[in-house]
Amino acid sequence: MSLFSTLLAISTAVMMIAWCFFVLFGQVTVKKLRKNIETKDELGVEFMSGLDILNAAGALSTPKALNKKLESSQLSFLHANSELLYKHTTRLDRILARILFMLFYGSATAMIGLVIAESLGLFSQ
């Protein structure tokens, strides 16, 4: 098995774990936030099913300075309200959000980087 195949298999396995955390975070945290009247409409725009789960995880995982910048931009309706989410989530919810965010976006970035590197011939022998 080549180095490219091995690295792609590892990032795919990490992505599968990320999808498990996606379901867990959606059932534990976002379901609770959707039922709350204050946070129901503050989860960002949902273009496709489940995007509000990633919006909530991103709002709970990114630094506060970046959240402020995103929430004050013209496209703020796409981003979840981080202050309100912090107010209505527990420490466990935030830990799940950070794990989901890091695994999901880390493995997606690794897969994209691997495909680009392969197309540029960096894995050719």
Rank of each mutant, 00 (worst) to 15 (best):
M1G: 15
S2D: 15
F4T: 10
L7Y: 13
L7A: 12
A9M: 11
S11I: 05
S11Y: 04
A13M: 12
I17Y: 05
W19G: 00
W19V: 04
C20S: 11
F21P: 01
F22D: 01
L24A: 02
G26I: 02
V28C: 04
T29F: 04
K31H: 09
K32G: 01
R34G: 02
K35L: 05
K35S: 05
N36Y: 06
I37P: 14
T39A: 03
D41I: 03
D41Y: 11
D41G: 08
L43D: 09
V45D: 08
V45L: 13
M48I: 10
M48F: 12
S49H: 11
S49N: 14
G50E: 13
G50S: 14
L51D: 14
D52L: 05
I53D: 05
I53F: 07
I53W: 04
L54R: 10
N55H: 15
N55V: 08
A57S: 15
A57Y: 10
L60F: 04
A65Q: 04
L66S: 02
L66T: 04
N67E: 02
K68Q: 05
L70G: 00
L70Q: 02
L70H: 03
L70Y: 05
E71N: 13
E71I: 03
S72L: 05
S72I: 00
S72F: 01
S72M: 07
S72E: 10
S73C: 01
S73V: 00
S73F: 00
S76L: 00
S76V: 00
F77D: 01
F77V: 00
H79M: 07
A80M: 04
N81I: 00
S82A: 04
L84R: 02
L84M: 06
L85N: 07
K87A: 12
K87D: 08
K87V: 03
H88P: 10
H88K: 15
T89K: 01
T90R: 09
T90C: 07
R91G: 06
L92N: 13
D93P: 15
D93F: 09
D93T: 09
R94Q: 15
R94N: 12
R94E: 11
I95E: 05
I95M: 11
L96N: 04
L96I: 07
L96H: 04
A97H: 05
A97E: 06
A97Y: 08
A97I: 07
I99F: 03
L100K: 09
L100I: 07
F101L: 11
F101Q: 08
M102R: 13
M102V: 15
L103N: 11
L103Q: 13
L103K: 13
F104V: 06
F104I: 07
F104W: 11
F104S: 08
G106E: 07
G106W: 03
S107I: 06
A108D: 01
T109D: 07
T109M: 12
I112S: 14
G113V: 01
L114A: 07
V115R: 14
I116K: 08
A117L: 10
A117G: 12
A117K: 06
A117S: 13
S119E: 15
G121F: 12
G121K: 09
S124F: 14
Q125A: 11
Q125G: 12
